[in-house]
Design a protein around this nucleic acid. Structure first.
Lengths: 268, 268
DNA sequence: ATGTGGCCACACAGGCCGATT
DNA sequence: AATCGGCCTGTGTGGCCACAT
């Protein structure tokens, strides 16, 4: 059984990311009721407090669904990060899971800092080719008992809280959580599949102001990502008649045909 | 055995806070080696990244030292927060532990937002009496299987990373972590002991700019806090000859006589 | 020198709006 | 009406300096 992701196929890397995202979706689904309760009813004196809410909710949702941990930590801007063993049918791989929480009143795209970008990206904006280099390393090394080092493959995901404010609300709920999206961004080794040229991909112009010389950012467009690989965009919608989101997993067959299937969950 | 902190004595509340801080200090001591390693050697492109480092380090240090958890969560600006069972010799109490990380190049005071202030504070600044109301509730309620509610007493602590930048460092270390301080701020029920009048206490003028009408903040002065209750200020110093901080617990006897005693630790 | 007060810097993370299909 | 680009705002956090002892 393999331990080194550099020796597996691109298809197997896809499977690692698919398996990882499936767990994130299950965890968010299980926690969706409390997440909505906290998100909608916690008073916030500022926009920043809403941001902090989503970070906390991602942690609460995911920490109970963790895998066999690897004794290695690092610090920085990523909201939720764990080094752990990922067991698969084709090997047991050390993995660095990186998840960032996003709060947004939009539901069609996410903005990434360069430090959150897992692959060198190229795209066309206003007729010009734009590029941005990856800021996420493809893997981290972990010291072992032997002379070898373990190579922990990096997997990047985003949890997007789509909401709207309730204007002038002086009593709860203060805002409405409409959906939770979960996105898996491909590892840089899959660049040839997802962004072989500026014309093909799901990247778009970032939110930064060039006029003010802000650090460049970049956007992920949901529909394009879904078109290239349906399961990489998961949508958990809240409805009026159920406290939990609707448990649907988006997948695709060999022909790229998209489908949605319901899944069971226990709830928290 | 009691479950409701409102029925115990002030001395027993002191003991709850002392016992709590003792664990925080043990946990920080055990983690001090890795904390220093990560703190000094992680590149930071901005001041904000240093702030995030300390938040992550506090989490890594404390999460392994947790108590019997209570199934209740809330979200917000506090860096590290847990609802849990605190067993003591005089009762088993539901507790809300609130810990905030502070990064500073100073080592004599901490600035608190009003939302981090556990008691109504009064002090004298520039000859004037200044007051600031508590922003931390004295307790939270937790629903139970019976008709009663559990009352979880709130305990506020701060972990202060005292550091200095290494100028022009283009290779690690980028900064030096000189000490870790741990502070326990008294519960509001102890106000009569710690701040009976504006003249007596450890509070001082906050860091906010009145001219710009910023939200009022407030400061805790280390020496004053230590003078009123020695164990409420703990100091873990790094030295050149040991990777861990020096394991000393500050205490005081009945006469208020201060002492420091070494303690054993295992390390991580 | 030390202890206090308090002005600012600044960089996240999105809201939001205008221009273009 | 949707998509995309991108300017700007709000605000949390602490560096840092100027006085006053």
């Amino acid at each position: 059984m393999n331990q080194d992701y550099r020796l597996i196929t691109d298809d197997e890397i896809e499977l690692i990311e698919k398996q990882t995202l499936r767990v994130l979706v299950q965890a968010m689904q299980e926690y969706s009721k409390e997440a909505r309760d906290i998100f909608e009813n916690t008073p916030a004196t500022s926009k920043s407090e809403i941001i902090v809410l989503t970070e906390d909710l991602v942690q609460y949702a995911l920490e109970v669904a963790e895998l066999y941990p690897i004794n290695k930590r690092f610090a920085g801007f990523i909201d939720y990060k764990r080094v752990r063993w990922l067991p698969t049918s084709f090997g047991m791989f050390p993995q660095v899971l990186l998840v960032d929480a996003k709060a947004s009143t939009e539901n069609n795209r996410d903005t990434l800092q360069q430090s959150q970008l897992p692959m060198n990206a190229e795209f066309i904006s206003n007729g010009q080719v734009v590029t941005l280099k990856a800021g996420v390393p493809p893997h981290m090394t972990v010291n072992t008992q032997s002379a070898n080092e373990l190579i922990a493959v990096t997997t990047s995901a985003f949890i997007h809280f789509y909401y709207s404010d309730i204007r002038d609300a002086s009593t709860p709920p203060y805002r409405r959580l409409k959906a939770i999206y979960a996105l898996a961004i491909p590892h840089q080794r899959l660049k040839d599949r997802y962004n072989p040229s500026p014309e093909i991909g799901f990247w778009g112009q970032g939110k930064h102001s060039t006029a003010r010389q802000e650090d460049p950012r970049i956007r992920v467009y949901f529909t394009q990502l879904k078109k290239m690989c349906a399961w990489r965009l998961q949508s958990l919608y809240f409805t009026n008649d159920h406290p939990y989101t609707t448990p649907l997993w988006r997948d695709c067959d060999i022909n790229g045909q998209e489908s949605q299937t319901s899944f069971d969950f226990i709830g928290r």
